[in-house]
Amino acid sequence: MANPDSQTFHWRHDELEDKNFQIRGRTLYFIIVLFAVVISITLLFIYLRWICRFSSSSSAAVSHTVTLSPRQQPLSRSHGLDSSVIDSLPITLYHRSETAGDGECCICLGMFEEGEKVKVLPNCFHGYHCECVDKWLTTHSTCPICRDTIRVYSPV
């Protein structure tokens, strides 16, 4: 049954090694270019992240030092104001005849009633219901309408 022409198959360890494997011409060029592009994009990404992190921290520091006079202290933190600062904001009674606005709280969209307590922000003079603006200021340090930073003026 065995055919004399058939050859048995033998695995030899030295046949598994490919000593003739070579990378030539275009293939080597494309591998080098691809590697250089990947490295360049990685370095660019790292550089842009560093620039964004550096510029956001330095611009915040510069804006506070440039825009504030020595008599002003920012009350703002990145996540809202202290409750003592919120309580120190002026509260007035709403009178329809004295206001030029439409008499609406822009946070809850409710109308102010005659004689109702309204908290007025010191820089922009926007008025809100006390409960509405107090909730807002615990998480934000800006006016809900104009986004002006709330500042306290210390006496000299």
Rank of each mutant, 00 (worst) to 15 (best):
R24S: 14
S58V: 12
L34P: 01
F125Y: 05
D87Q: 13
H126A: 04
P122E: 02
H79A: 12
H13R: 15
Y29C: 10
G115M: 14
I150D: 01
T65N: 14
T149D: 12
P155W: 08
D87N: 14
V38Y: 06
G103H: 09
H126Y: 14
I32T: 15
S154H: 08
I39D: 07
D87E: 15
A61S: 14
T92W: 07
P122N: 04
S154D: 13
I32V: 15
F125W: 11
E131K: 13
E113A: 14
P4A: 12
P74L: 05
S141H: 03
S97R: 13
I41L: 14
I145N: 03
V156S: 09
K135F: 08
D18R: 03
E98G: 01
K117N: 07
V66E: 07
H10F: 14
D134E: 15
I86A: 04
F30N: 09
F30D: 02
M111W: 11
V38A: 14
T149M: 08
P70C: 06
T138K: 06
H140N: 08
W50Y: 10
C143P: 02
H64S: 13
I31C: 11
T92M: 07
N3V: 03
I86S: 02
A100C: 01
W50A: 10
I150M: 03
I32E: 15
I51G: 01
S40F: 03
P70F: 11
C130A: 08
T65K: 13
Y47L: 15
S59E: 09
D82G: 04
V133P: 00
S55N: 11
V66D: 04
I23P: 13
T92Y: 09
Y94K: 12
W50F: 10
L93G: 12
Y153F: 05
E116R: 03
P4R: 08
W136G: 04
C108A: 00
F54D: 06
K117C: 02
V38E: 11
T65C: 12
Y94H: 15
I150N: 00
D87L: 07
R147V: 02
D87C: 05
L137Y: 02
E15M: 02
H129D: 04
Y153I: 06
R77F: 07
N123V: 07
E104D: 02
E116V: 09
G127T: 03
S88I: 07
C143Y: 02
T149W: 02
L93M: 11
C130P: 00
S69M: 08
R151G: 02
T138S: 05
R53E: 09
L81F: 00
V118I: 05
T92E: 13
V66Y: 08
L109S: 09
S6Y: 06
F112G: 06
V118G: 00
I86C: 05
D14R: 13
C132N: 10
L16A: 03
K117H: 05
